Simulated scan of single mutants.
Amino acid sequence: MARKRALFIAALGASLAAFAAPVVAQASLAMLDSLDSGGWEVRFRDGSPARKICVRTGRELIQLRHPEGDCNRFVIEDEAGTVTVQYTCRGNGYGRTHIRKESSSLVQLDSQGIAGGKPFQFTAEARRTGTCG
């Protein structure tokens, strides 16, 4: 009986540990890897000021409202021309971002979620502008 209890507790602990570890996306997100690295400008369709970012892997475009990066990601869609990623940032909200590639230097973004306790939703166009400054 004690051995069964010990095995049950060990199995339960292993199961719970899996939830505590960050989620690693199983998808390759190859479309993001195909984007040109360098300086990019994000222009928001709602008239908000444009934002300049440095793109190294393309994954920087996923969490524009959660740039801290300490978030768990789950890939919803990973196709040649589109990527959709849902993410959760412990203690700071969550988001879901859809990125559609027009070329290696131009993408369309659609993102929504909660950041800093407030909802957000935006559509934007991101375009490579040169080197990171």
Rank of each mutant, 00 (worst) to 15 (best):
81 G>E: 12
73 R>M: 12
70 D>P: 00
73 R>D: 11
85 V>M: 07
65 R>H: 11
74 F>E: 14
80 A>T: 00
86 Q>C: 07
58 G>L: 03
70 D>E: 13
71 C>A: 15
58 G>W: 05
72 N>L: 09
66 H>Y: 08
71 C>R: 05
66 H>M: 09
86 Q>P: 00
75 V>E: 08
81 G>S: 09
84 T>E: 13
81 G>K: 03
86 Q>E: 15
69 G>E: 07
59 R>Q: 12
71 C>Y: 07
67 P>C: 13
59 R>A: 13
69 G>F: 10
57 T>M: 05
58 G>T: 02
72 N>C: 08
60 E>L: 06
65 R>L: 10
70 D>H: 15
81 G>I: 01
75 V>H: 03
75 V>N: 04
70 D>W: 11
80 A>R: 01
77 E>H: 02
70 D>F: 14
62 I>A: 11
70 D>C: 13
61 L>P: 00
60 E>D: 11
62 I>F: 14
78 D>P: 00
76 I>A: 13
77 E>M: 03
84 T>F: 07
61 L>N: 04
77 E>D: 10
60 E>R: 04
80 A>D: 05
76 I>T: 06
75 V>M: 04
76 I>C: 03
84 T>C: 04
84 T>M: 11
64 L>K: 04
80 A>S: 06
64 L>P: 00
66 H>L: 08
84 T>N: 05
76 I>W: 08
68 E>T: 03
85 V>P: 00
78 D>K: 01
63 Q>A: 15
61 L>K: 02
77 E>F: 01
77 E>G: 01
71 C>P: 01
67 P>Y: 12
81 G>M: 03
63 Q>E: 15
61 L>R: 02
84 T>L: 08
58 G>R: 02
61 L>W: 07
57 T>E: 12
64 L>R: 04
72 N>F: 10
81 G>Y: 06
84 T>R: 13
86 Q>M: 13
64 L>D: 07
85 V>G: 09
84 T>W: 06
71 C>M: 04
68 E>S: 12
62 I>T: 09
63 Q>M: 14
60 E>F: 07
74 F>R: 09
75 V>Q: 03
79 E>G: 02
62 I>L: 15
59 R>H: 08
76 I>K: 07
78 D>W: 02
57 T>F: 09
78 D>G: 02
82 T>P: 00
82 T>N: 05
60 E>M: 09
57 T>C: 06
74 F>V: 09
78 D>C: 02
72 N>Y: 10
65 R>V: 05
70 D>V: 09
78 D>E: 02
85 V>H: 06
58 G>Q: 04
70 D>S: 14
85 V>E: 10
69 G>D: 06
83 V>D: 05
80 A>I: 00
72 N>P: 00
